[in-house]
Design a protein around this nucleic acid. Structure first.
Length: 366
RNA sequence: UGGGGUAUCGCCAAGCGGUAAGGCACGGGACUUUGACUCCCGCAUCGUAGGUUCAAAUCCUGCUACCCCAG
């Protein structure tokens, strides 16, 4: 019997993943990862409750379960980078790194040590093999597809991965959990940075980042408020600016960060031209396949997502060395340095890159 | 100091005698395995003290504050 390790979070998806593999005849081992040791604002350690849910589910399904700790790896390979990006004024996505460095690296090694040849998770994605090449495909449930978070994986990692719920809808997953009496069948979906969970983001960051207060100014240099540190804001953000009653009465949004002068550039209206761009540059390119889908310097048509759950955007991309030039057909709102642009050809996730710069319409049109 | 004006939620702002619009901000919730965006809900008795009136934020008077003009 083939042994398989399932990464179990204590949520419905990974629980059902384990259930399905058991039904398929695998020798399933459930493993819970604990990668962050801290209580949340309310003093609750959610990982303890999640671990109890995992044990409960594994008992119901009838599989053994273990807990493993990757706090150090998470700190060194994910969180450190996360903070360093914020210090550079960028807005990182820790979860894409977490998948590459923790779930499909450290954890994969651990699965090997347990004698498993494969690792399963509850991600809503699918894979297939064509001409000996592993492909990453969107999950069937378009509303829950999580391929965006897995674009940094390579073929060799995907080849060892199994995603049992990728072909199901969320509703079907919950239904199955219910049918089999899994205690977590109605558990709320978890959100927030994975392993860290839902937080008051600003106060969470304040534990790690020095505050360097400065002015909020319009693009013409008029001071309209004060910021508590550029790192605490992200492009396109509305909440938390505290500016009310000025100008034409519309909402204010973060348009840019002027690190040199420690100025947060803000502007009024969701349609502000500085908020939109079609020309975007990215680097740290990852192609899931061994090579890029197009030749160096050639333009390639595909679709992209600049954030999780964004509807597909038609784009043309061109790779020049380590830089990827993206041109979107339609203006994109608040494309943010540090965030990931992920590319698709149909239902296939090709890979992605980290945004370095988005040229505002106001400038590129001149 | 004399003359004029204004004082309505944190900010902007309707209201003009009939029992407090709206926007922004803020708070809560929904959505969401990043950060955001978005959506929903909530949010004042009208500077103050009196008076007139069945009834005042709306009229009158005193006081206070701020603004403008004069000098």
């Amino acid at each position: 019997m083939e042994r398989i390790v399932v990464g179990m979070s204590g949520g419905v998806d990974s629980s059902v993943a384990a259930l399905l593999l058991k039904q398929q005849g695998y020798e399933v081992v459930g493993v819970f990862m604990k990668n962050w040791d801290e209580k949340d604002e309310d003093g609750v350690c959610t990982s303890t409750a999640d671990w109890e849910d995992v044990q409960d589910v594994c008992h119901t399904i009838g599989i053994p379960c273990y807990s493993v700790n990757f706090e150090k790896e998470y700190m060194d390979n994910v969180f450190h980078h996360f903070l360093s990006e914020y210090e550079k004024g960028r807005t990182p996505n820790p979860d894409v790194l977490c998948n590459r460095e923790i779930k499909f690296k450290a954890f994969l090694h651990f699965a090997h040590k347990l004698g498993a040849s494969k690792l399963a998770t509850g991600h809503f994605v699918q894979t297939d093999t064509i001409d000996g090449h592993q492909r990453l495909l969107r999950g069937v449930d378009g509303n829950k597809d999580q391929s965006y978070f897995l674009y940094m994986l390579k073929e060799h990692q995907l080849a060892q991965a199994v995603f049992p719920v990728g072909g199901m809808t969320k509703a079907q997953v919950r239904e199955l959990a219910q049918e089999h009496g899994l205690s977590v069948s109605k558990k709320k979906d978890s959100t927030g940075i994975c392993f860290i969970g839902e937080r008051n983001f600003r106060s969470f960051l304040q534990n790690y980042l020095a505050a360097k207060p400065g002015p909020m100014q319009t693009e013409t240099g008029e001071t309209v408020g004060k910021h508590i540190g550029l790192a605490y804001y992200t492009l396109g953000q509305r909440k938390g600016l505290g500016i009310g009653g000025r100008g034409d009465g519309r909402s204010w949004f973060v348009l840019a960060k002027d690190l040199k002068n420690n100025v947060l550039v803000v502007g009024q209206g969701d349609d502000h031209p500085l908020l939109y761009s079609t020309h975007i540059q990215a680097s740290e390119i990852t192609w899931i396949a061994e090579s890029a889908p197009m030749a160096e310097g050639e333009t390639f048509r595909c679709t992209a997502k600049f954030r999780y759950r964004q509807p597909d955007q038609a784009v043309s991309i061109r790779q020049n060395g380590d830089t990827l030039f993206i041109e979107a057909d339609a203006p994109q709102r608040a494309v943010t340095p540090g965030q990931s642009a992920v590319f698709y050809r149909g239902d296939q996730c090709l890979g992605g890159a980290i945004v370095d710069e988005a040229v505002p319409l106001q400038e590129s049109d001149q």
